[in-house]
């Protein structure tokens, strides 16, 4: 028998890693896909919004599967960023840059998602803002907002794709360097696809 002296950091780190994929990663896939309905115009897009608005237990689903996981992932992620000391100028290896970009996009996303959730969801709950194709399109006429959206979408695509890569090492799925390299290419491909889908959806909003 051995004494189990498991530190809290183990649980927190692994929870942070797990939540990044389930449910946050899955939600990102759904979110990018659903918003792509904008490609088919205002009527189609607004009908999808109506569908989601009518989901039973919506607030509970949003809280348990989106809001709380995001909050934990974001706050604990910020702590992880704090514990790291990047040294990219001295040691400019590819993976070391990915390490840094993962943290930079993470911090960007904390601000971006905070703002995004406020303008598209919380303001609807508090002030009854009507979130629709027209509402988004009107917001996007401001180039600052549009480019801020592009930064957020590309950051999310990168953070999720590269997060899958490290998730696979953390949990012992890709153990050897060859498997890790292969997964590196796959996740890089996923990043490109997601960024394309995300930006295309953004471009679909014009009045």
């Amino acid at each position: 028998m051995t004494e189990i002296a498991v530190d809290r950091s183990f649980f927190n780190r692994r929870l942070h890693s797990f939540l990044g994929i389930f449910p946050i990663g899955l939600f990102i896939l759904e979110h990018f896909f659903t918003n792509s309905f904008a490609v088919h115009g205002a009527t189609v897009y607004n009908s999808k919004i109506e569908f989601f608005k009518e989901l039973p237990y919506l607030l509970a689903i949003e809280t348990i599967f989106i809001f709380l996981p995001l909050l934990f992932h974001g706050i604990y992620g910020l702590y992880i960023v704090y514990t790291g000391e990047p040294n990219n100028l001295q040691y400019g290896y590819y993976r070391n840059w990915m390490y840094l970009i993962q943290r930079v996009t993470g911090v960007i996303l904390l601000f971006f998602i905070g703002w995004h959730v406020y303008v598209t969801r919380i303001s609807a709950l508090l002030y009854g803002t009507e979130v629709s194709y027209q509402y988004m399109a009107k917001m996007f006429t401001n180039p600052v907002v549009f480019w801020w959206m592009v930064i957020g979408v590309v950051s999310a695509a990168f953070h999720f794709a590269n997060g899958i890569w490290s998730f696979c090492i953390v949990w012992g799925i890709t153990v050897g360097p060859k498997a890790q390299k292969r997964m590196g290419w796959i996740t890089l491909g996923l990043f490109v696809v997601l960024a394309f889908v995300g930006i295309r959806a953004l471009l679909a909003f014009h009045i």
Binding site: A5, I80, G84
Partner: peptide, 18 residues
């Protein structure tokens, strides 16, 4: 393994691979 699940264990790796 329990030692590596404790303080400063393998979970604190950031996968920078330097």
């Amino acid at each position: 393994l329990h030692a590596l699940m404790g303080k400063g264990g393998v979970h604190e790796c950031g996968n920078a691979q330097n």
